[in-house]
Amino acid sequence: MNPTMLSITIALLFGIGTFMILRRDMIKVAIGITVLSHATHMLIVTSGAFLGGKVPIITSDHESGSGIIFMDDIAAGVFAPIVPEGTEMIYSDPLVQALTLTAIVISLATTAVLLILAYRVYQEHGTTDLNEIRRLKG
């Protein structure tokens, strides 16, 4: 998918999410955070070094010897990995996918806590209006 268009979408989602978390309504804030999280997850995947390759599942045993250097040699100024010219990347970046997976699960956990918390706050304060929830001030 075109990264530029995707970036614009993500940024738009950030704008919308920001608007939502500025609302007075507790549940809307939670939903806004969810929107922001979704945008962030898409963002992480988009930040992959190479997009649009194959699914990162190796179907046959990969043959090594691609010529990529994986060793740093600081003295010589070699900062691994060094990829020779013309090496073609056939898979999409697996690292960002793993990171996103971690981020998704973490945001599931935190959002769950946030939601239950919102429910408990409602129970204690009797309202979901954040302007009313201001016992702590000054």
Binding site: A49, H62, I68, F79, P81, P94, L95
Partner: peptide, 18 residues
């Protein structure tokens, strides 16, 4: 990313199976 900052992802692709 422009060379020489190739992503460390190459390592995972090269070495997952072996």
């Amino acid at each position: 990313i422009t060379s020489p900052f190739e992503s460390i992802s190459y390592y995972f692709i090269e070495n997952s199976v072996p």
